[in-house]
Design a protein around this nucleic acid. Structure first.
Length: 204
DNA sequence: CTCCAGGGGGCCA
DNA sequence: TGGCCCCATGGA
């Protein structure tokens, strides 16, 4: 397949998907929109976005949409708040770990006036319990505008649908490197492409 | 009723 | 490495 050509076709069919950023700090004044994206990447693991939205709203209402607050809040309260996103015990633990990482790295302060500029490395993220390759890459791409191609189950189906049966079953990083080698290294392109692939997959 | 969503960790051969 | 199983809610 020709990744560039497929992208054009998908965009022509579905248009812009408006994944992240969903709002640039306007919807939640006082909170760093980047950290909300990071929370979203964790909560949406194998979960419908609709269920995640409720959880994020709850976190916002309880002033828990920044690293320091999540790090400090009792985990039980966190669990109750994110219950709608499923796997809520595991995800509460994951959010705690992620919040600890970003507060210790002095990356997020929860206030828009101190937005993060320090980009974590992929291996730093992968070292965190609960952060696998797809989530790490989603954080880098969607929260930090780092041009890395996010691979998921739909990406494999897309490859298979275009005759790349072999590559579709290959290792995550082989697929990622394939797309990255075939496309200009543009974070906006990667952002939209992954979202379009998911949209395509849901269309079935 | 079943199936699955914007995955990842643990375990075992 | 690769294949299972588990985690859990909510909508179709």
């Amino acid at each position: 397949m020709f990744p560039n050509k497929v992208y054009q076709e998908l965009f022509k069919e579905f248009g812009s998907q408006h994944w992240w950023p969903k709002h640039k700090g306007k919807k939640r004044p006082g909170f760093d929109p980047h950290f909300e994206i990071i929370v979203g990447t964790v909560l949406t693991q194998n979960t419908a976005w609709k269920n995640v939205k409720k959880a994020i709203e709850c976190l916002y209402e309880k002033n828990l949409l920044d690293a320091e607050s999540i790090f400090a809040v009792p985990i039980k309260k966190l669990e109750i708040c994110i219950k709608s996103s499923g796997y809520y015990r595991q995800k509460a633990k994951k959010l705690k770990i992620v919040a600890k990482f970003f507060s210790e790295n002095n990356a997020y302060h929860g206030r828009s006036s101190k937005i993060c500029t320090k980009i974590p490395t992929r291996s730093q993220l992968l070292a965190l319990w609960g952060i696998g390759r797809e989530t790490a890459d989603s954080i880098l791409l969607y929260a930090f505008n780092h041009p890395i191609f996010v691979v998921d189950a739909y990406t494999r189906r897309l490859l298979a649908a275009h005759g790349q049966k072999k590559l579709a079953k290959a290792d995550y990083d082989k697929i990622r490197e394939y797309f990255e080698s075939q496309l200009p290294r543009d974070y906006k392109l990667f952002n939209e492409y992954h979202a379009l692939i998911v949209r395509w997959g849901k269309e079935k």
